[in-house]
Simulated assay, not measured.
Amino acid sequence: MAPIPKPQAEPDDSPDAYLGLDAEHAERLARERGWSTVRSLPPGAIITMEYRVGRLNFEVKDGRVARAWKG
């Protein structure tokens, strides 16, 4: 029987560290810190609410990260 896959671990990183950063710089930094998916969204964007391990979401307003959260 095949082994049960182990979920990938999330980086030991706080989403709050990205608040106020330039969106492009924040995306690069997040990828360097090990986030497999980085998603930038405009304020009020309609998105699905499923939790994805390894994904970091940014709400970007005026080119800066206004909100950041995992999943």
Rank of each mutant, 00 (worst) to 15 (best):
residue 16 D to C: 07
residue 39 R to T: 13
residue 34 G to P: 14
residue 56 L to Y: 00
residue 61 K to D: 15
residue 29 L to W: 02
residue 47 I to V: 09
residue 70 K to E: 14
residue 8 Q to I: 13
residue 18 Y to T: 02
residue 65 V to D: 12
residue 12 D to E: 09
residue 24 E to N: 11
residue 30 A to E: 08
residue 20 G to P: 09
residue 17 A to L: 02
residue 49 M to Q: 13
residue 26 A to W: 03
residue 37 T to P: 01
residue 6 K to Y: 13
residue 4 I to G: 00
residue 71 G to T: 13
residue 27 E to L: 11
residue 63 G to F: 13
residue 2 A to M: 06
residue 17 A to R: 02
residue 41 L to T: 06
residue 29 L to H: 00
residue 39 R to H: 10
residue 18 Y to Q: 01
residue 56 L to S: 03
residue 57 N to S: 09
residue 2 A to F: 12
residue 69 W to I: 06
residue 21 L to P: 01
residue 30 A to K: 05
residue 59 E to S: 07
residue 41 L to Y: 10
residue 64 R to H: 10
residue 38 V to N: 02
residue 69 W to N: 10
residue 67 R to N: 15
residue 51 Y to K: 07
residue 69 W to R: 13
residue 17 A to I: 00
residue 52 R to H: 09
residue 31 R to P: 07
residue 18 Y to M: 04
residue 67 R to Y: 14
residue 8 Q to C: 07
residue 63 G to I: 08
residue 63 G to Q: 12
residue 3 P to W: 05
residue 56 L to G: 01
residue 65 V to Q: 14
residue 42 P to G: 00
residue 6 K to I: 14
residue 1 M to A: 13
residue 15 P to M: 03
residue 15 P to Q: 03
residue 8 Q to K: 12
residue 45 A to E: 02
residue 57 N to P: 08
residue 63 G to N: 10
residue 65 V to M: 12
residue 23 A to K: 07
residue 59 E to M: 09
residue 63 G to M: 12
residue 6 K to V: 15
residue 66 A to D: 14
residue 52 R to T: 06
residue 53 V to M: 13
residue 68 A to Q: 06
residue 2 A to Q: 12
residue 9 A to G: 14
residue 61 K to R: 15
residue 58 F to N: 03
residue 66 A to V: 05
residue 2 A to C: 05
residue 55 R to P: 11
residue 16 D to A: 15
residue 60 V to E: 14
residue 4 I to Y: 01
residue 6 K to G: 05
residue 65 V to R: 11
residue 19 L to M: 01
residue 45 A to V: 00
residue 36 S to P: 10
residue 14 S to F: 10
residue 70 K to N: 13
residue 68 A to I: 03
residue 59 E to G: 01
residue 46 I to C: 01
residue 26 A to N: 11
residue 57 N to G: 08
residue 18 Y to D: 01
residue 36 S to D: 13
residue 52 R to Y: 06
residue 63 G to V: 09
residue 62 D to M: 09
residue 51 Y to G: 08
residue 1 M to Q: 11
residue 30 A to Y: 07
residue 9 A to F: 04
residue 47 I to N: 01
residue 24 E to W: 05
residue 68 A to C: 12
residue 20 G to Y: 10
residue 5 P to Q: 05
residue 22 D to A: 06
residue 50 E to L: 10
residue 23 A to H: 08
residue 45 A to W: 01
residue 47 I to M: 01
residue 40 S to E: 15
residue 62 D to T: 11
residue 71 G to C: 13
residue 40 S to K: 15
residue 26 A to G: 04
residue 24 E to C: 01
residue 34 G to V: 12
residue 68 A to K: 09
residue 33 R to Y: 05
residue 34 G to D: 12
residue 46 I to G: 03
residue 32 E to N: 06
residue 66 A to S: 14
